[in-house]
Computed example of a mutant assay.
Amino acid sequence: MDAPSAAKKPETRPKRTRDGSGLRRYLIIRLLLIVPTIFILTTLVFMLMRVTGDPITAALGGRLTADQLQERIHAAGFDRPIIVQYFEYIGQIFTGNFGTTLSDNRPVLEVLTTYGAATLELAFYALVIAFIIGIPFGMLAAYFRDKAPDAFLRVVAILFYATPVFFAGMVLKLIFSVWLKWLPVSGRGTTTTELEMQLLKGKTGIYLIDALRIGDGAILADVLAHALLPGLALGLLTAGIFLRLVRTNVIGTLSMDYVDAARSRGVKEFRLVRVHAYRPALIPIITVIGMQIALLLGGAVLTESTFEWKGLGYQLTQYLQARDFVAVQGIVVLLAVIVAVTNFIVDVVAALIDPRVRY
């Protein structure tokens, strides 16, 4: 008699990982967080700008008679309850109306579009310089870990980060512009370059792109020469952070099992750093770029003032001196929006590169 056959167990299929749904959920959550972030920042800026009173009195007090001042305040609606002004301002922002500057009677949106490109261009130069300096020297410090070159580079990284941007800018100007006379002292270009940029049809406001469109090598060289010192002054700040971050992560990667296996096969240490530890060390760099954008935009205010780089930072200092809080409010809100959107983009890139970020 045959032995009773064993009951067949139902087949268990491995569960499919919902990688796509996890990514979508993560992106939706990050996108939804942008709205309250911008809302909170806008509210804080609005309230802080009202602490000193109404903007009309702050900007024009002492230059107008009491009756003229009161007439301007009433016409602008600044004598209404603060909550009414707040909701009206929020509604105007959603329609793209940031108000009109008090010192030069220009739409704030026009100021933002005119000078915003210059600030973004400066931040781009600084970020490129930070990558060029921070990543290679961070890998070099990891290669010579706990040796003299490593100690020297760590001190340099601390100096880069601790040195105020305006002081670094003045030192660079003194060395390369005054003593060596290699680079221009200030501005975004010579008078000829500025004129060419103003006459160019369909200009972007980003001189590097516009110079490439013109196709004149002399103008392109002039634009890059004027951008080098301000980009370097601002980029060194972030380069110090990148250097230490790359060093730490490369050293951590070099202690992984797969790196030890490669080392046991006779792979040289420099190749381990350059090939096996390089890419994993870049993932943390990508995740902190969003925070560095905020740092770069904050540093751009001092850098632009030092080098007379006419961007939003430079204009912000001018409007602060004029106590034009309507213009200041619009510029700060735009910078907050840029930081929030940039952080979202960086989060998306980080989630695509490293699946662990999504969960």
Rank of each mutant, 00 (worst) to 15 (best):
residue 250 V to H: 02
residue 271 R to Q: 15
residue 79 D to Y: 06
residue 85 Q to R: 12
residue 328 V to T: 08
residue 311 G to F: 07
residue 144 F to V: 08
residue 221 A to D: 04
residue 272 L to S: 06
residue 79 D to M: 07
residue 3 A to M: 10
residue 121 E to I: 05
residue 265 R to I: 10
residue 202 G to D: 11
residue 193 T to S: 12
residue 260 D to W: 11
residue 55 P to Y: 03
residue 155 V to D: 03
residue 149 P to W: 10
residue 125 Y to M: 15
residue 99 G to C: 07
residue 108 V to G: 00
residue 231 G to E: 13
residue 326 V to W: 02
residue 145 R to I: 05
residue 162 A to L: 08
residue 119 T to V: 05
residue 156 V to E: 06
residue 355 P to F: 07
residue 57 T to E: 12
residue 104 D to C: 04
residue 239 A to F: 07
residue 253 T to S: 13
residue 329 Q to T: 10
residue 255 S to H: 11
residue 138 G to D: 11
residue 359 Y to I: 06
residue 94 F to R: 05
residue 221 A to H: 07
residue 129 I to T: 02
residue 193 T to L: 11
residue 10 P to N: 11
residue 139 M to P: 02
residue 299 G to K: 02
residue 104 D to R: 12
residue 149 P to F: 10
residue 20 G to K: 12
residue 260 D to G: 03
residue 23 L to G: 02
residue 147 K to Y: 00
residue 13 R to K: 13
residue 333 V to D: 01
residue 346 V to D: 09
residue 178 V to E: 06
residue 18 R to H: 14
residue 12 T to G: 02
residue 58 A to R: 09
residue 196 E to F: 12
residue 80 R to I: 03
residue 93 I to H: 01
residue 265 R to Y: 12
residue 308 E to R: 15
residue 268 K to G: 15
residue 228 L to Y: 05
residue 31 L to R: 04
residue 78 F to G: 02
residue 178 V to L: 13
residue 101 T to Q: 02
residue 8 K to L: 13
residue 162 A to P: 07
residue 148 A to W: 14
residue 116 G to K: 06
residue 228 L to Q: 06
residue 42 T to R: 00
residue 233 A to T: 08
residue 62 G to S: 08
residue 260 D to T: 15
residue 196 E to G: 08
residue 209 I to E: 03
residue 334 L to F: 12
residue 5 S to M: 14
residue 293 I to D: 00
residue 320 L to H: 01
residue 316 L to V: 06
residue 249 N to L: 00
residue 268 K to M: 13
residue 293 I to Q: 01
residue 150 D to I: 04
residue 32 L to K: 05
residue 24 R to W: 14
residue 197 M to A: 06
residue 245 L to N: 02
residue 143 Y to Q: 05
residue 219 I to Q: 01
residue 318 Q to C: 03
residue 115 Y to F: 15
residue 343 N to R: 00
residue 70 Q to M: 11
residue 282 L to I: 07
residue 37 T to N: 02
residue 267 V to I: 15
residue 327 A to R: 00
residue 319 Y to R: 13
residue 193 T to G: 11
residue 69 L to E: 05
residue 33 L to V: 13
residue 139 M to C: 15
residue 60 L to E: 10
residue 320 L to Y: 02
residue 266 G to Q: 09
residue 58 A to H: 04
residue 315 Q to N: 10
residue 224 L to C: 11
residue 55 P to S: 09
residue 214 I to M: 14
residue 147 K to S: 15
residue 259 V to K: 04
